[in-house]
Design a protein around this nucleic acid. Sequence first.
DNA 1: AGACCACTTGCAAATGATTCGCAGATCTAC
DNA 2: GTAGATCTGCGAATCATTTGCAAGTGGTCT
Lengths: 139, 139
Amino acid sequence: MAQPHELRERGLRLTPQRELVLAAVRELDHATPEEIAEKVRQTHPGINLSTVYRNLETLENVGLVQHNHLGHGGASYHASEEVAHLHLVCGTCGSVGDAPIEAALNFVNSLSEEYGFRTDVSHFAVYGTCAVCSQAELS
Amino acid sequence: MAQPHELRERGLRLTPQRELVLAAVRELDHATPEEIAEKVRQTHPGINLSTVYRNLETLENVGLVQHNHLGHGGASYHASEEVAHLHLVCGTCGSVGDAPIEAALNFVNSLSEEYGFRTDVSHFAVYGTCAVCSQAELS
DNA sequence: AGACCACTTGCAAATGATTCGCAGATCTAC
DNA sequence: GTAGATCTGCGAATCATTTGCAAGTGGTCT
Ligand SMILES: [Mn+2]
Ligand SMILES: [Mn+2]
Ligand SMILES: [Zn+2]
Ligand SMILES: [Zn+2]
């Protein structure tokens, strides 16, 4: 009768913490575990950071969220339903620009054809130097 | 008169530790700081891990070595003179395959043209699923 | 060769991020 | 409602990397 909750129908228990973490990931867009915890605590101060970590892992296991790497370490999380896009990270100024995944389509296809490798282009950022910093380099 | 040592000519002091770290990076090919320390200690047991970290940073600052990211965290180091290549990391089995940077040439060029972004394709690994694991998925 | 001093090193402690152990709380299925 | 599996908070552990500091060393200038 009752429509199954999206967490329950994936075999997960429905706890307030879990729902809050998922909601925070959806609102924030590629946020770190720390940022997600902070967001959740704005309305529910008691939630422990390790609970956030554990739930991120759980949610990732059932495919509701995914992580990627935008900087030199750590991971950021985003909702799976979010439209995938490339992250252009500038090693000089640290800016993070977006680009459509289509920009990598040929690249992905050629890796697939030549190596049988199925690429997830948005798991790691695309690293380099942004237009602004490239300009500035011509000092 | 004396031919300047490669470290000295970059304004660095020539210490045994520094030379050893550089030599280890050259021999190992994308190794972690820990692996580099281990290598160095095979012949010089006294060398401290923090000395390795500090020298890797120093060597990177003068352009003799570079780091990249092959896994979900941490960094690996390689010598700058090494031929750049792509790393195809499989998220399923963890294998790391190589591919020539040329495979990314069109991709890099299009990011340059459309966004003015100069891409360093080998800083982050290319993440995805290798041919073997892709096969296996058709269970 | 000797002296000076800035740069390096080893060591121990600090840090920051993530994980773990466990006892008590809470979900769900019955 | 009860029972058992799962989850949470909390503190401690772990792991990677960084830092402070006192002692050691390399390069330069007599
Ligand atoms: Mn990096
Ligand atoms: Mn990852
Ligand atoms: Zn920039
Ligand atoms: Zn694989």
